Amino acid sequence: MTTRSCPCGLPRPYEACCGRHHTGAAPAPTAEALMRSRYTAFVRQDGGYLLRTWHPRTRPARIDFDPAMRWTGLEILGTTDGSAFHTAGTVTFRASYRGGALHERSRFERVDGAWTYVDGDFPD
C-alpha cells in the first residue's frame, strides 16, 4: 500500500502532516503550517477545521464549498514573521485549481496561543 503525500505539498503522509492539525493532535506551530493545513482542509472540504482556525473577528458563520472545485496544488511564495516567536505573520501563496489559481497574501494572528487566519488580499 502506498501512502500519498499530503495535499499541502510537503513530502509527508497526510496523517503525519496536516492531518495532525485537523484532528487536534498537534496545533500548527507556524503561520505557514496553518496556511498549509487550511489549504488541505479546503481540498478535503473540512469546514469545521477552517472555522476553528479562523480569527473570531473575521470568521464567517459558515463555509459553502463549491462541489465542482478541484484544488491541484499549493506553492508558498513567501512568509513574513509567523514563527514560534511572533504573534502575527503573513504567508503569500498560489493555490492552483482546475482552470486557474488563487494568489493571496494571508494575514495570521495568534489567539490564545494558537495561529488563526485573519484575512488576505490579492496581489496582482
Rank of each mutant, 00 (worst) to 15 (best):
G120T: 12
P27Q: 08
A61W: 07
A95V: 00
G73C: 07
W115K: 12
E104P: 12
W54G: 00
H55K: 07
D119E: 15
A41P: 09
R12K: 09
A26C: 09
T80K: 03
A26L: 14
E75W: 04
Y117Q: 13
S5M: 10
E75F: 05
L51P: 01
G78M: 02
L10G: 00
R110L: 11
G24A: 07
S96A: 12
R110A: 01
T80S: 08
P27L: 06
W115I: 06
T30A: 02
W54N: 00
A114C: 13
P7E: 02
V43G: 13
T23L: 14
F93V: 00
R57W: 15
E32Q: 12
G9E: 07
A114H: 11
P13E: 15
P13N: 08
T79W: 05
W54T: 01
A101C: 05
W71F: 10
R59V: 01
E109M: 12
G120Y: 14
F93S: 06
Q45M: 14
G100N: 07
D121M: 12
G89Y: 07
G89R: 04
P27S: 12
A101T: 09
F85A: 12
A61R: 14
D119S: 14
L102H: 12
R57A: 15
A28L: 11
G120D: 15
I76E: 02
D66R: 10
G113V: 03
G89V: 02
V118T: 06
T79E: 15
A68P: 02
L10D: 04
F93G: 00
M1K: 01
R38L: 14
D46F: 14
A114I: 13
T40L: 10
R94W: 03
I63N: 08
P56F: 04
P60M: 15
T53P: 00
G48Q: 12
H103C: 09
F122M: 10
A95E: 05
P27A: 13
L74N: 05
A25N: 04
T80P: 02
P56M: 01
G9A: 08
A25R: 08
G47P: 05
P27T: 12
D112H: 13
E75D: 12
A31H: 09
T30I: 12
E109G: 01
A114G: 07
R62V: 02
F85Q: 11
S37E: 03
A95D: 03
D121T: 11
D119P: 05
G82V: 00
A41H: 11
V111Q: 08
F108N: 04
P13T: 09
A88D: 11
T58D: 12
T58V: 00
T80V: 04
I63H: 11
A33T: 05
G82T: 01
